[in-house]
Nucleic acid binder design. Structure first.
Lengths: 158, 158
DNA sequence: TGCGATTTGTTATAGTATAACATATCATCA
DNA sequence: TGATGATATGTTATACTATAACAAATCGCA
């Protein structure tokens, strides 16, 4: 997983964009300037960004000025697994497992909004058992842990 | 857990309200008319209800007409564990484990918005491991499975 | 009874998201 | 290569979700 620790930001942006581009190429999807830029913005910050935060950046750069521009790009990224929506925050993050088929789970810092993506074990566990026993068919699983990241535990103890 | 199966609705509303009332009594909390009524409304439907849906009912009954009335009652219910917020739907449901200390997980039908509450196993699993290894301190866990309930699988196959 | 704390009423506004339709661009194949 | 159907963007308008701020009422208790 990509945690809260330091990492090479430049290469992580580059490789994220490259992975998305490759995937679009392979699938015949259009990786347009707005879509690419929104993904870059999400990769640049490693925190959850609201649609309107993203729109502000786009507007500054002349790439679009109305909400639907941001929402459409985000829909595209989410639909294709390049980004995820954090329901708890009404915000979005770049995916850190580009390409891999995965069931994301998130660690969300309530102080700084940093988000780390990890894996949820979907098949096992009480939830799967409950779903099975009631006949509920799970299609998508949202797992979001809210708490304090290591850094903010220093600053905001207890 | 409370599943999607049939159950005695009347007794389930009565016992839910009674449990909340007892808890408030014990804790010295005020179980006011609006708060009681909102809990009843949530118990009556076994689906996720938006704050404004609830407000509509309150308004019809002369119990309040402005959003803060509904939101404040919901905040109270959620804070005290009588109800839960479904982040995925921006909506609320009555708790079906009144009183017990629990980590709720939800099965949400994307067709009819019915919600079943069950338990998440928080301590074990990949998530807990990931949190532990990064030093992230989990305070609250949101687990929401989106899919089709048994009934809607009949109506809306595959 | 009076005082502080809690709850409710109300106005206003902030923040999140999408419908609908016009225009432009792309992708392809005749 | 130029027509055409599909996809993407631009734009206006509006719907939905949520909270700030302050006044008025009510409650709990000394």
């Amino acid at each position: 997983m990509l945690g809260f620790e330091h990492h090479d930001h430049h290469s992580c942006i580059r490789s994220g964009v490259a992975a998305a581009e490759a995937h679009c190429m392979a699938e015949g999807l259009q990786f347009t300037p707005v879509r690419r830029r929104v993904l870059e913005i999400l990769l640049e910050r490693h925190a959850a960004l609201g649609a309107y935060d993203i729109l502000d950046v786009l507007r500054d750069e002349g790439l679009g000025s109305q909400p639907p521009v941001a929402y459409r790009a985000l829909d595209f990224l989410v639909s294709n697994g390049f980004a995820h929506k954090i329901e708890r925050l009404n915000a979005f993050v770049a995916c850190t497992h580009m390409g891999e088929d995965h069931n994301p789970a998130f660690l969300i810092c309530r102080d700084c909004d940093a988000v780390a993506e990890t894996q949820a074990d979907t098949a096992r566990g009480a939830l799967a058992k409950a779903a099975g026993s009631t006949g509920f068919r799970v299609e998508r699983l949202v797992v979001e842990a809210v708490g304090l990241c290591p850094r903010c535990q220093q600053v905001t103890p207890a």
